[in-house]
């Protein structure tokens, strides 16, 4: 009889995974008790998530630190009020590992005309005229040993997902990035730990081989 060599590997992985859920639940519990404000953001984050077949977002929240950016970029004005698609600026997400930060020329494409009298745009124009990119800071930074590609996930949940429309891509982004529409400067609201990833991978039959994601 062939021995399934993976049995004990996956079992111990599962144990580790369960452990992380327990800590996650404990953490969520703590957060909920801590304050109504936080609880309301939790509900807000869940409200943004798509009602799409096979799209089960992983549970869990995380109170991220504020990441000060060179220009206080208002995601809410762009994504919520003006309904700009996430992939208009983060254009690399659908075809590469990283979602990418748009080049300043993309900002200036609109802002050489629109809202030029605002302080933040003036600051942006300064950078543009100096020919320097604003030193944006990374908010969602995966550890060195994790291999994550935006492209694969977008293919799976947006382009090859029946019932999903590309105009609603922000709902898929919200699985991991939280409800960016409600934020000004992006902030980490999901834990993005292994338990968080595994929940979604289990619910959607994602790969469970260690070397798919670890490098």
């Amino acid at each position: 009889m062939p021995v399934n060599r993976c049995t004990w590997t996956s079992r111990s992985l599962l144990d580790a995974f369960r452990g992380s859920i327990v800590t996650q639940i404990a953490r969520v519990g703590k957060v909920l008790v801590t304050g109504i404000f936080v609880a309301s953001t939790v509900i807000g984050a869940n409200a943004a998530v798509a009602d799409v077949p096979n799209a089960n977002p992983p549970k869990g929240t995380h109170k991220g630190e504020d990441v000060p950016q060179p220009i206080e970029f208002p995601h809410d004005i762009h994504a919520k009020i003006n309904e700009i698609n996430c992939m208009y600026c983060h254009t690399y997400a659908r075809r590469s590992k990283v979602a990418g930060i748009p080049p300043t020329s993309k900002c200036m494409g609109c802002h050489s005309v629109i809202a030029t009298d605002r302080d933040r745009i003036k600051k942006l124009t300064e950078y543009w005229e100096k020919k320097e990119p604003p030193p944006w800071k990374k908010v969602h930074d995966m550890p060195d040993y994790v291999h994550f590609t935006h492209e694969k996930h977008l293919q799976r949940f947006v382009f090859n997902n029946e019932g999903m429309d590309v105009t609603r891509v922000s709902e898929v982004c919200a699985f991991c990035h939280g409800d960016v529409k409600e934020m000004t400067v992006a902030k980490k609201t999901k834990p993005l730990n292994m338990g968080f990833c595994r929940r979604c991978h289990e619910a959607n039959n994602g790969p469970s081989d260690c070397w798919h994601c670890h490098k």
């Binding site: 009889m1 062939p2 399934n4 060599r5 993976c6 590997t9």
Partner: peptide
């Protein structure tokens, strides 16, 4: 329990490939 599995299947473990392999 990973350890239990190793101990129980120890004698089979490194003969698996002769019986058709561990994986698809």
């Amino acid at each position: 329990m990973s350890l239990q599995n190793i101990l129980n299947n120890w004698d089979k473990y490194r003969k698996g490939h002769e019986a058709g392999g561990h994986h698809v």
